[in-house]
Design a binder for these strands. Structure first.
Lengths: 235, 235
DNA sequence: CGACCATTTGATATGGATCAAGCGATGTGG
DNA sequence: CCACATCGCTTGATCCATATCAAATGGTCG
């Protein structure tokens, strides 16, 4: 039962800081521009991380809150037996690094080159003391995160087909407007997210393709052809 | 892969209300008596539920927050294929029913006859607007819940032995001071909690007994003989 | 005692892991 | 521009942990 996933060494070019007091044109993230959004833009620093570089490590003090601006991020944990469990994928607009203990429970890495808005937790809390709006937003955010993890929990007791189908539907809902999903992450990432092996993920995709539920023009691009078939698999 | 657990019909005697404006001697729950504790005692109603009766149902509006006073409670969800996934077990002092959507994600039932302190969410929120202390406590509570679910998530990708061992350690840490664990829940409950079958849970316990890691004097009573062996199994 | 229910134990089946090889893209050096 | 190494992905063969099916055991309550 050991080693589903060997620890993969991570060559890590260094990340770049580019602080800025003035808010930049902050890209595709402006949906609602809530209190949190504003605070982060005002008080945050923009950081650039290159593919596979570490953003923070498990057990490091959790001093910051992070928001993906461009690119994508994974959080993960290495289990004692060497397997890696991915906690979540974060796409532009998503917030990660939300912690309640003093230290991070997960590590975080850039999946692709990524720009991330970083704000000091302390500063944020200080603001939140003044702004009930901001406080409420942080609360809501936590609630969403809780819900997300609960859903993951339910996923992990289902069959491989169900897990993969759910994953595709989730990614489609989050990222793309259309039925085409552009996956930033590798098969290994998906496997570690779903608690499967890379072989099983691959086989399952092939199988779904056989059913005409999906198309896989390139390994990183997947087109949903039959959403209802996928949802049916899914709980 | 269908039917790990058939839906078990739940004969349900009715539950009893006994409101009281004045706080009663509220049993073994007084650890810290935080703002939340006080508010619940002041504004809450004490409800009695008999074994297996429903406290709230999935998709019902989430109007209340609940705190176990005596007895024990499970939250669960019936999956589309008929299996039941248990979200959590709640023992005296534990709070459940924490929701962020308007409706409950899980159902809740009394495992044993139980007394539960119930408070209106609206009333609580109103209080929280005045009391930063209370607000913070609710926030922390959510954080703990998040952590708990994350841990469960990690559990669900491990082997049967690891899951059962973790479960026993968790129950020992929460409930009893000593190494003897009194389980309020059935094997089926445990199985649905861990994402295993009742047979696997039973066999695993027998196996752990064989290793002298535990003793099982009666099916509902388990004595931890070798905690470190259990932790070693555990991630 | 007898019916019922929860639990354990046994025999067999199976989904997904593991081991192993093949295959296409991408990149590198000659 | 092409051989060649590398990497990520797919495909195939086999194994194993856990599910499933079935029966025995034991505890509880009328």
């Amino acid at each position: 039962m050991l080693t589903q996933t060997a620890i993969r060494a991570v060559p890590s070019r260094r990340s770049t800081v580019s602080t800025h007091g003035a808010p930049p044109a902050s890209g595709p993230t402006d949906r609602e521009a809530g209190a949190l959004e504003q605070t982060m833009r005002l008080m945050g620093a923009m950081m650039s991380y290159s593919r596979n570089s570490e953003i923070f490590g498990e057990n490091e003090p959790a001093e910051y809150l992070y928001k993906v601006v461009t690119g994508s991020v994974r959080t993960y944990k290495i289990l004692s037996d060497g397997r890696r469990q991915i906690g979540g994928f974060y796409l532009p607009g998503d917030i990660f690094g939300l912690e309640f203990a003093a230290e991070h429970t997960f590590s975080a890495e850039a999946i692709t080159d990524a720009k991330v808005l970083v704000v000091k937790r302390g500063a944020l809390n200080a603001q939140a003391n003044g702004s009930a709006l901001l406080a409420r937003e942080l609360f809501t955010l936590t609630g969403h995160e809780l819900r997300r993890v609960q859903d993951r929990m339910l996923l992990l007791v289902k069959s491989a087909q169900e897990r993969v189908a759910s994953f595709l539907l989730e990614m489609a809902d989050r990222g793309s407007a259309s039925n085409a999903v552009e996956l930033p992450m590798s098969r290994q990432d998906i496997a570690d997210y779903l608690g499967l092996t890379i072989e099983t993920v691959s086989r399952t995709l092939t199988c779904l393709e056989g059913t005409a539920a999906i198309e896989v023009p390139t390994s990183r691009r997947i087109v949903l052809r039959n959403r209802s078939a996928l949802s049916r698999l899914n709980s």
